[in-house]
Computed example of a mutant assay.
Amino acid sequence: MHRLLRAVSCAFLLCPSPLLLASTVFRCEDANGHVTFTLQGCPTEQAQQLQNADNPTPGNDKPVPLAKTAKGARSSKTSKKAKASELVVVGEQQDGCGNRVTGSARRAAMIQKEVRAGMTRADVESTLGKPDKISSQNGQMRYQYRDNEGRSRQVSFDENGCVRGKR
């Protein structure tokens, strides 16, 4: 019994607790003082600092007071300043095709079973399924699809695996 208790306590100590999980992110500041946070690291021209990102579960620590609101109406100077700020996208995923078809346009094309220039092979296979025939010539791949009525459809890819536009 004593040996079993010791084994269970050792196993408990070796398993990481989900409460201890946190992430480290990069805090990037450019020459103009704009600050961005990313998991991928900062560009060489920006100052980089490591920042611990810890999100404790509610009820495990001291209460955090809510932000105090300014009394009175917002001044027009404050609202102009808020409008002047711009959105910075950090760590955008590259699809290898120049991100020519992204977001809602990609989803709409897939739902309507359309193939658009700039889609990847994975996008085409997700839209139309596995091709009936694959051919390759000069580093360029071609998928051929045939439906139940005997009609055929061809999709051509460039050397990067992106759907080529019509000439």
Rank of each mutant, 00 (worst) to 15 (best):
4 L>V: 14
104 S>I: 09
42 C>R: 01
84 A>N: 01
6 R>D: 04
81 K>Q: 14
121 R>C: 05
146 R>I: 12
134 I>G: 06
138 N>F: 08
166 K>E: 15
23 S>E: 14
121 R>T: 08
61 D>L: 13
66 L>K: 09
5 L>P: 02
157 F>D: 00
9 S>D: 04
71 K>W: 01
65 P>R: 15
109 A>P: 12
164 R>Y: 08
137 Q>W: 08
131 P>N: 02
13 L>I: 09
142 R>Y: 04
137 Q>V: 07
83 K>T: 12
65 P>V: 10
49 Q>A: 13
130 K>W: 12
130 K>G: 09
78 T>D: 14
107 R>T: 11
40 Q>H: 07
4 L>P: 00
14 L>H: 03
60 N>Y: 02
2 H>Q: 06
129 G>Y: 05
51 Q>F: 13
109 A>S: 15
41 G>Y: 06
7 A>S: 12
151 R>D: 13
132 D>W: 04
36 T>I: 02
28 C>L: 03
24 T>A: 07
79 S>E: 13
111 I>C: 03
74 R>T: 10
51 Q>A: 10
60 N>I: 10
28 C>S: 02
114 E>W: 05
74 R>N: 12
154 Q>R: 08
158 D>F: 00
97 C>N: 00
64 V>G: 09
111 I>K: 10
31 A>R: 15
66 L>Q: 14
47 A>L: 07
103 G>H: 01
125 E>V: 10
56 P>Q: 08
159 E>P: 09
69 T>L: 15
58 P>A: 12
37 F>Q: 01
129 G>C: 07
5 L>I: 10
130 K>I: 10
26 F>S: 15
81 K>P: 03
132 D>E: 13
133 K>H: 04
119 M>K: 00
137 Q>M: 09
84 A>C: 00
25 V>H: 01
40 Q>M: 09
18 P>W: 11
45 E>N: 15
33 G>R: 03
97 C>V: 01
65 P>E: 11
151 R>K: 10
135 S>Q: 12
14 L>K: 04
75 S>E: 15
90 V>G: 06
78 T>W: 13
13 L>D: 02
44 T>H: 12
148 N>W: 11
126 S>I: 05
134 I>P: 02
42 C>A: 05
23 S>P: 05
43 P>Y: 09
76 S>C: 07
12 F>M: 13
127 T>L: 06
38 T>Y: 02
154 Q>L: 07
154 Q>V: 12
38 T>F: 02
149 E>C: 10
52 N>W: 04
72 G>R: 11
111 I>R: 06
19 L>E: 14
122 A>F: 11
159 E>C: 07
89 V>M: 13
130 K>L: 15
23 S>M: 07
52 N>R: 11
156 S>H: 15
21 L>C: 11
89 V>Q: 07
99 N>E: 01
104 S>P: 00
103 G>T: 01
142 R>H: 07
151 R>W: 08
41 G>S: 06
132 D>Q: 13
106 R>P: 01
130 K>C: 05
61 D>I: 04
26 F>R: 10
75 S>W: 10
150 G>W: 07
98 G>L: 07
156 S>I: 06
88 V>S: 10
118 G>I: 00
120 T>N: 00
34 H>D: 12
